[in-house]
């Protein structure tokens, strides 16, 4: 019981810390590729503390609740994702050091749905801010989500069909026994990596909160503590997406440290690509997501289905 409570608290805290650190790292990487010095790694922490102390404006209850919903939803999602640890006993993975406090409540399907809370909360809050720029941003966000969800769902379904389970801990356990997902479902892994920037909202897919065109889109009216919480939410969301990638394709981690190292590798790889690409338009983003990643994921799913039915 005590370990469980500690885990329940530990998971979101790790996500918060690592997520915010990754935000700082991302700025540093991009700066170095652009041959700038860049801000210190802990710059986002300073920003969050500063913004928390500033007084913000509010346009209504939903404007505030949207932010709460987005951040709380992202934090809850973390509880369903295994963050490293060797799966020894499948009936009770908690007892053996797998850091996944709610592994026994619904599996991958629940995670996919819980990942909705972030965009949905932000969309509702931004809608209540009554700023047309925010509405345009939300419309782009939801379209982009639909665009990358099609290949992402194909990827998830291929993985679930391959391992014949909807439980993430089970998927991780199977990879630790018989090789990583990147080897057994390679095309899915490539497709998922191609849509990773879209899921993270980084370049070339940062059209949702494009500052120069639509005044940061959904964030247009947010300031002070709300903006701080939304920055934290962005970090946690980043953590969730990359952790999910590591769990599905890179065999999770034998412990928390190796798990975080794997996350770092995936994140840096994605950031390096993002740093050299310009922003694209929403039409092009939709077209891209429905072309190459979808084709690869579809092919992998067909292969998986055929090889399972033979």
């Amino acid at each position: 019981m005590v370990t469980r409570i500690i885990q329940l608290l530990l998971s979101p805290l790790i996500a918060l810390a690592v997520g915010v650190l990754f935000l700082g790292l991302s700025r540093k990487i991009i700066a170095r590729i652009h041959r700038r010095y860049g801000p210190p790694l802990y710059q986002p922490v300073i920003d969050v503390i500063r913004m928390m102390s500033q007084r913000s404006i509010s346009h209504g209850s939903l404007f505030e609740l949207g932010v709460v919903l987005a951040l709380a939803g992202s934090l809850v999602t973390v509880l369903f994702i295994p963050l490293g640890g060797t799966v020894i006993c499948r009936q009770n993975p908690l007892a053996h050091g797998v850091l996944c406090p709610l592994s026994s409540s619904g599996g991958l399907l629940v995670v996919m749905y819980l990942m909705l809370f972030g965009p949905l909360g932000l969309a509702l809050g931004a809608g209540d801010s009554a700023n047309p720029n925010a509405s345009i941003g939300v419309s782009r966000k939801l379209l982009l989500a639909l665009a990358y969800e099609v290949p992402f769902l194909l990827v998830i379904l291929a993985v679930m069909s391959h391992y014949r389970t909807i439980s993430i801990t089970e998927i991780v356990a199977r990879q630790q026994e018989s090789g990583w997902g990147v080897l057994s479902v390679p095309l899915s892994a490539v497709a998922a990596f191609l849509i990773l920037p879209a899921m993270l909202g980084i370049r070339p897919f940062d059209l949702v909160s494009a500052p120069q065109e639509i005044a940061s889109g959904p964030l247009a009216e947010y300031g002070g503590s709300y903006l701080a919480l939304l920055a934290v939410q962005k970090g946690v969301h980043l953590f969730v997406v990359i952790a999910l990638y590591v769990d599905l394709f890179l065999g999770g981690g034998v412990n928390l440290a190796t798990f975080l190292v794997k996350m770092l590798v995936v994140f840096v790889a994605a950031e390096m690509i993002a740093a050299v690409l310009p922003r694209i338009r929403i039409e092009s983003a939709v077209r891209f997501c429905w072309k190459w990643p979808t084709a690869l994921a579809l092919l992998q799913m067909a292969i998986t289905v055929l090889s399972k039915s033979v």
Partner: peptide, 12 residues
């Protein structure tokens, strides 16, 4: 949120 500075409700 409660611990941080209280927001001011303003018209749009």
């Amino acid at each position: 949120l409660r611990a941080s500075a209280a927001p001011r409700r303003v018209a749009q």
